[in-house]
């Protein structure tokens, strides 16, 4: 088991009343799964993804990641965990504007204190694999949306995560670009055994997954 959520509740207070973002969510994810989270706006998809990614907390329930009880861990320990095992891909790509393609991909390795020669090799491999060698010295604003998202995924993969969390990765892309990204996810999932959890609105994209979870008002329907 890669991760397991049990009876997760998350709420915010608004004018004295509790508004539930996540309402008794339980979820098990095995290594190598490809999961799509679907649901209307405000149903808690992104919140769930953020909880899984340990970027956000919750009030009640338990969360085990590789048998470790996340809900009891200290912030620092938790961030070490997600840095080690989780890669994030965003709808807005969230590349660092001041860095070139090469540097964006390289940055996670810098923070992991990987040696310079090794870094070079890893980044080159990644550029090769994604076919963006020619773009390595460009800045994000010089790329198309699809290319930016490729760089975003490359950056997420560079530190060899066990799981990739993607929040509407194709939300800003046209259908052709979307398809390419989805093909890439599928390939990663099948060939490299990377677990993928994505939030999506699109039925077509959701269909790439091996499992679909539907959320409504913070609860898993199905």
């Amino acid at each position: 088991m890669l991760l397991e959520l049990q009876h997760i509740y998350k709420w915010v207070k608004q004018s004295g009343r509790n508004i539930f973002l996540l309402n008794d969510v339980s979820l098990q994810v095995q290594e190598g799964e490809f999961i799509s989270i679907m649901g209307p706006s405000g149903s808690g998809k992104s919140t769930l993804l953020n909880v899984i990614g340990m970027l956000d907390g919750f009030q009640e329930g338990t969360y085990h990641f590789q048998e470790q009880p996340i809900h009891t861990l200290k912030e620092k320990h938790r961030s070490n965990l997600y840095k080690e095992y989780i890669g994030f891909v965003f709808q807005q790509y969230h590349l660092i504007d001041e860095l070139t393609v090469y540097e964006n991909i390289e940055t996670p390795l810098l923070y992991k204190k990987v040696k310079s020669s090794e870094r070079k090799a890893l980044v080159s491999d990644m550029l090769d694999r994604f076919n963006i060698v020619g773009k390595k010295d460009l800045f994000p604003h010089q790329l198309s949306g699809g290319q930016q998202q490729l760089v975003g995924i490359a950056r997420a993969l560079i530190s060899k995560p066990k799981v990739i969390l993607a929040d509407e990765p194709t939300g800003n892309l046209n259908s052709k670009q979307s398809e390419e990204i989805m093909q890439l996810f599928k390939q990663l999932n099948e060939e490299d055994n990377v677990t993928i959890i994505q939030v999506t609105h699109s039925e077509t994209n959701a269909a790439y997954a091996t499992k679909i979870i539907n959320l409504l008002d913070g609860s898993i329907t199905k």
Binding site: L55, L95, Y111
Partner: peptide, 16 residues
Amino acid sequence: TKEVSIRKIIGAQKKS
């Protein structure tokens, strides 16, 4: 904010 957040998510320690 954006730059700092991304850096944090992709692994930056506060120190760095």
